[in-house]
């Protein structure tokens, strides 16, 4: 598998602030890659370096096999980019903007006509003839994704494409991105975990300018996610929760609204042996005991949650 993006030892310093601190990252061709991190982690800075808008303080960045250092036209010819807040010429219509964007790539004639028609359809803007100045945030974001696709890029990079959108707008944009699977490498930054779980196959988690995890989502869940056990008893749940909380293998214990007890465990085997013993010691009736599913949020909190208030 070839790398669409290869970042080695990337550092970016603004004054006394180290925005990126030795980032290493490989994004394989054909993947839908979620670049996850809390606000201020350095996601936008990474994308600005990748697109040649900013220069690295040190380190090496290669896109589609070429160094970005020169950020020459040949690299830009093959990428699509959507910034976090895309700026459009408000006096243009969506069709005019897509034709303009295509023109910047040298597209003309019937090829440009076809591309623009397909992308307007994809963005759901075919019948919209108002100027972009009157567009909603969601319409602008969909147009933003469409303009990033006008050159049929080998690599599409998007910065927080779904933030600030309502649920329907988010779904529209995620559907647009998911529809590209297998045709284009998609690399997008976000702090919205459910978006990543929904469409990405691979993720990297960035925190304070460093990549703290990197790999297929299932691998990360297996590697970093604290394992969970869910227990339900007929009565005495509160006593049981308190008792389990004192066990050495229980990291956190949560009593859910429906009366179940959700236990994050550090040693799954010890928990499986110890839990029934605690339940039996009080003569409680065990209704359910099962392994809970680890989601990306657990991984995220495990990796970047520590030290945050």
């Amino acid at each position: 598998m070839k790398a669409a993006i290869q970042i080695t030892g990337l550092t970016k310093v603004f004054g006394s602030k180290r925005a990126l601190d030795g980032v290493d990252l490989i994004v394989e061709e054909g993947s839908i890659f979620g670049f996850l991190g809390p606000n201020g982690a350095g996601k936008t800075t990474t994308l600005r370096v990748l697109t040649g808008l900013a220069r690295p303080t040190s380190g090496r960045v290669r896109i589609l096999g070429r160094d970005v250092a020169g950020a020459d036209d040949e690299v830009r010819q093959r990428i699509g980019f959507l910034p976090d807040v895309p700026g459009f010429y408000d006096w243009m219509t969506a069709r005019e903007f897509l034709r303009f964007a295509g023109g910047l790539f040298g597209l003309t004639g019937s090829l440009l006509d076809e591309r623009v028609a397909v992308l307007l359809d994809l963005a759901g803007l075919t019948d919209v003839s108002t100027r972009i100045g009157g567009f909603s945030r969601g319409m602008k974001q969909r147009l933003g994704v469409a303009q990033a696709l006008v050159n049929a890029p080998k690599l599409l990079m998007l910065d927080e494409p779904t933030s600030a959108l309502d649920p329907i707008g988010r779904k529209d944009v995620l559907d647009m991105l998911a529809s590209l699977r297998g045709r284009t490498t998609v690399f997008f930054s976000t702090h919205i975990l459910s978006d990543v779980e929904r469409i990405c196959d691979t993720v990297a988690i960035l925190d304070a300018g460093k990549v703290v995890a990197h790999g297929p989502i299932d691998d990360l869940k297996a590697r970093y996610g604290a394992q969970k056990v869910i227990v339900e008893v007929d009565e005495g749940a509160e006593w049981l929760a308190g008792e389990v909380g004192r066990a050495p293998w229980a990291s956190t214990v949560t009593l859910t609204e429906d009366g179940a007890i959700e236990i994050a465990v550090s040693d799954a085997r010890a928990a499986r042996c110890g839990l029934p013993a605690i339940v039996a010691s009080r003569g409680l009736a065990l209704r359910r005991m099962e392994a809970g599913e680890v989601d990306l949020e657990d991984v995220f909190v495990e990796l970047v949650g520590g030290g945050r208030s």
């Binding site: 697109t51 040649g52 808008l53 036209d73 830009r76 010819q77 990428i79 980019f81 910034p83 807040v85 895309p86 700026g87 459009f88 010429y89 964007a101 910047l104 790539f105 040298g106 303009q147 050159n151």
Partner: peptide, 17 residues
């Protein structure tokens, strides 16, 4: 004005030096 409005970023990440 093009930098402030963000239009410069959309143009300059395409093959325009």
């Amino acid at each position: 004005s093009e930098r402030k409005s963000g239009t410069a970023v959309l143009v300059l990440t395409k093959p325009v030096s």
